[in-house]
Design a protein around this nucleic acid. Structure first.
Lengths: 373, 373
DNA sequence: TTGAAAGCGATACCAG
DNA sequence: CTGGTATCGCTTTCAA
């Protein structure tokens, strides 16, 4: 005997009962189920009828054991600490909806703990493929993942020798900073994540490097006091901005490593009675829905597409084709939280329509491109 | 032969290889795996070593087939059309994180299509239990679900004879409307969902009934023109509010059936140059994160808790205890989008906490449209 | 075309 | 305590 409740919890019908009712062998039933080989029209008909009559549904577990495939794709991510991940997940499910694959979530909020546990749980006979989103895995973890032989695709993370969907955070940092510079800002601060965040998020640092480069190219000396790092939370960004504003020579603009943090910066300014963008410009990164809604100027990356694209690459891998990593384009999205610094009339063209942009950003989401160079 | 790639994709190690290496029978290995019965300390040790050496991980599929349980809980919901669902999901995953169950998502965005497909896919050998969130199933669908014998718990939906976590939408509708009445409003409009929305969402209608009751009790005649129903989308709510504002005698307050729709109402007002809350009060429902952030007055329901509680009830059911349905409390959350109607100074106290008006400040740019060149 | 039979990898009895 | 062994439900050769 096995553990199964003999009472008959399940629909009772198995491939054997179908075969019996149809008066054929189980092999034949399996064939019509997978419409493999040729099955004579008449038998197929009988089998179909039996299936119908018994309300039969094949057991996923048995099928998985037999074929070695689960029709399930795992998604490993910090879903709720990182709001952008939810939008990426949407892309994943959309793309996978018609693929015949289920989606199993592995929510990793805590550093190693969750990860370590899930890494092993995730892979063995539970999923055919794995999507790792916005989560940098350590070397050993990566190695372990590889030995399982399960195809893995990384989204929002570039990994040596692995297929991934990512964007150039450094370039994004430059994009943001250059926008601020063009507006006439010179005292530009950066608010990002601590270097050893919960998962060692590296995007923030890459973005900071871009910021530094842009300043350097503009011939502006980096001011260490203007660089603030803290936990990846809105209140931390708020506190950091609060400190920045209290400086003897406060910045006139803040580049935040994420929209979430940018909104924290906006809050801090608001609370301190500093108008945005009149007296403080704020630019974020990601372009999450909230940013669109709040009219936040930001560096947009296609979040939903990244998830969809990642899912697609994984599907390719599952189908046997060797997928190629892909870089997604970043785009400056100018909305209402950046403007020329007070008392500066540089770039009037760019500074006056701010208010209109604010509305546009909120209401119509125009694709605004920056004139390059 | 079976379909399995003989090449050795997987970690190759099975319970048999472990048994061989440890020089014991598979039964014994299974015992230490499930630390069932007593296994002599020394053998257990040897087995553990073998497991370690082989980097062995039991196959979920085989286990599922053998035990009839999958250690997986399915969550059926319209994750991305209904933002509140994401917050509920967060509660679900949090509660399930330490339970040993995986979470498989069944995203249902389209009416029957998705649902019909998933209903069958979902249940047979894929999940041990099902959480149905914010999705009213039709009678036949419910019946079919029942015959599978899989325990089901409904979240945000009250179902006859099934265990569920829900709140009293009608009471919530009253709560919202009474708040508006107390502020001195008499011309109160309702913006909600069409009665036969994609899934036949009924919450909206229940909330409307509460609204009606409150008006009735206050001796205010219901004004049919003040009741607008449309698709559950922000732009639809915006359009509806636009029409309301264009009425000969426009309302001074809007009760929206959800925060999303309420924000649409705020947008419409903003675009029409009508200040919120000075000239139009807006109250929503749900208290999603965006609402908190935008300073929207709303009827709060514990979203995350509802998910967690639902998961807990399902766990109970899975453990054999008969779970009991539960009602969650609704609470008025007064923030920045409601105030006494213009020219009325009743209850100024109730109208707005200070710092939540942050976004309103950003959003209110009425002059824009008027002063457009 | 189709039936029979050998696994897939684990669990859980049944003797010893 | 422990080693066999009979399943679980399905897929897939291998003959017929």
């Amino acid at each position: 005997m096995r553990g199964r409740l003999d009472g008959g919890r399940d629909g009772v019908s198995t491939i054997a009962s179908v075969a019996a009712l149809a008066g054929v062998g189980v092999g034949t039933v399996s064939r019509v189920l997978n419409d493999s080989s040729a099955v004579s029209g008449s038998t197929r008909m009988r089998v179909l009828e039996a299936i119908e009559a018994l309300d039969y549904e094949p057991s996923a577990a048995a099928r998985a054991l037999s074929t070695g495939r689960t029709s399930t794709i795992g998604v490993l991510a910090p879903f709720f600490t990182e709001p952008s991940v939810v939008e990426r997940l949407r892309g994943v499910t959309r793309r996978l909806a018609s693929s015949g694959y289920q989606v199993t979530l592995f929510d990793v909020e805590l550093p190693e703990q969750g990860d370590a546990a899930l890494r092993s749980l995730a892979v063995k006979g539970r999923v055919d493929g794995l999507l790792v989103v916005s989560l940098p895995l350590s070397g050993p973890q990566l190695g372990r993942l590889r030995t399982t032989g399960v195809p893995v695709v990384f989204v929002d993370r570039r990994v040596e020798g692995a297929t991934a969907v990512f964007s150039d955070d450094e370039a994004g940092g430059r994009l943001a900073t250059e926008h601020l510079l063009r507006l006439g800002h010179e005292r530009i601060a950066f608010v990002g994540d601590t270097e050893n965040g919960p998962f060692g998020f590296t995007s923030s640092e890459a973005r900071r490097r871009g910021y530094e480069q842009a300043l350097h190219e503009a011939g502006i000396a980096a001011h260490p006091e203007y660089v603030r790092r803290g936990p990846h939370r809105r209140d931390a960004a708020r506190a950091a901005t609060h400190e920045l504003l209290a400086l003897a020579v406060p910045p006139t603009a803040v580049f935040a490593a994420s929209d979430h943090q940018a909104l924290g910066a906006v809050e801090a300014a608001t609370m301190a009675g500093v108008e945005v963008p009149e007296r403080l410009s704020v630019i974020g990164f990601d372009d999450v829905e909230l940013a669109r809604y709040c009219g936040l100027t930001t560096v947009a990356q296609p979040l939903e597409s990244s998830g969809a694209r990642g899912a697609e690459l994984l599907l390719d891998a599952l189908a046997g084709c060797e997928p190629r990593s892909q870089e997604l384009r970043l785009e400056l999205q100018v909305r209402g939280t950046t403007a020329a610094p007070a008392g500066c009339s540089t770039n009037v063209m760019e500074s006056r329509p701010i208010r209109t942009r604010l509305l546009n950003g909120m209401m119509r989401e125009p694709k605004q491109f920056e004139g390059e160079t």
